[in-house]
Write a protein that binds this DNA or RNA. Structure first.
Lengths: 206, 206
DNA sequence: ATAAGATTCAAACGATCGTTTCATGCCCTG
DNA sequence: CAGGGCATGAAACGATCGTTTGAATCTTAT
């Protein structure tokens, strides 16, 4: 499945990501993962300790850079003297959308993310909260700044819908075919505009 | 777990629904289900044939009545001389929201629905398509009527986001506490208004 | 009351799960 | 070249999975 010149750890992560996206965390077995990665079954426990830790590392590998990009995009927005809901949403959406349209395994990872949203697994939620809650907090502050009339609880409630909706949408986005003759770059930009307009309208509504 | 005066089949369906919502279809075992339902392990295969068929029946039990209510609400909307996006959305949202706020196991089922959205399980999707695609088609026609400027492909794309977002939102809705002193009735109506306004804004955007 | 059918039960089936063990191969440094 | 540390290999561990079996029990109708 995977080219043999990548390291064992990387090939395991790639296969795990793809199989978790397709069959879920409980539904994909370590034997499927190691067979797809062309490595020995014991390699997972040797390199990662346990299946649970492998799941965490699948997230960490992509989320570290994804959230870095989101935060730096947000920082660029915040530096402007005036910024809109669309600006903040763009900082959130565009890095993830680039991932979901990447030709490496990024599309699979966004589907894994959507699964993590649907699952209410306690330990997975704790891992995500422990490692990445500061990102959501930063964005919540930015949204509060640009939606001054909204009380805090209502804002969190709407952000929850928006992030869930966007994650769902982006998870399915890799499947949607782009019109013939449209460049990948233009296709992504149109998708981002749609998603942002959609979410912005939702945030302003009411 | 379940009162013994309900039938074995019903208790199995109730327990399965709750456990599928919490642990997923692959994550919840038939031993957990039957233990929670206080029935013998073999009862599942006796009454349902297989785990896969049990999953289907969990859906069928709720979706039959849910989609009936959705279609009759939609029929009432279509009878009016003029109707809005909000009217059509209301026919889609209110029956499901009532389910997610019901004091029987309905809240669990909406979480099961959200899981089915996240999973791309081939056989489950085929089952849902075979049994309930006519409902989505009816709503798509109504939306097309009320959004005349939108081309068909763009409409389907937005409906996909909207139904995903709404399902996700309603799945988490049972968790959200309502303000003290607010009646359950009023709470549901406020939630419906929020969701409808949110989705309508999204559908109109762009 | 008794035969016939429907349901429940304990027990076991083979398959597969995550994990562990220990032997073997590899590369690198002394 | 010898040896120590990391990596991989085949094989097996006990646990749990969905499913099946056949006897025990309950229900129903004649």
């Amino acid at each position: 499945m995977n080219a043999p010149h990548f390291s064992t750890k990387q090939r395991i992560l790639d296969s795990a990501e793809s199989l978790f996206a397709r069959h879920g965390f409980a539904g994909a077995s370590l034997r499927q993962v190691t067979a797809s990665a062309n490595v020995n079954l014991a390699a997972v426990n040797y390199h990662f300790g346990s299946k649970e830790n492998l799941i965490n590392e699948v997230f960490r590998r992509r989320l570290d850079s994804l959230n870095e990009e989101r935060l730096s995009a947000l920082a660029a927005v915040l530096k402007k003297s005036k910024f809109s809901i669309e600006d903040v949403l763009g900082a959130f959406v565009r890095p993830a959308l680039a991932l979901s349209l990447a030709d490496d395994g990024g599309a699979g990872f966004v589907r894994v993310l959507a699964r993590a949203f649907a699952e209410h697994n306690e330990r997975l939620r704790k891992f995500l909260h422990d490692n990445y809650s500061h990102v959501l907090k930063q964005f919540a502050m930015a949204f509060a700044q640009v939606l001054p009339g909204l009380d805090k609880q209502e804002l969190y409630w709407r952000l929850d819908i928006v992030s869930g909706a966007l994650t769902y949408a982006m998870a399915d986005f890799g499947v949607i075919k782009r019109a013939a003759g449209m460049s990948e770059q233009r296709h992504r930009e149109m998708a981002a505009e749609h998603l942002i307009a959609f979410a912005a309208a939702g945030l302003r509504a009411g």
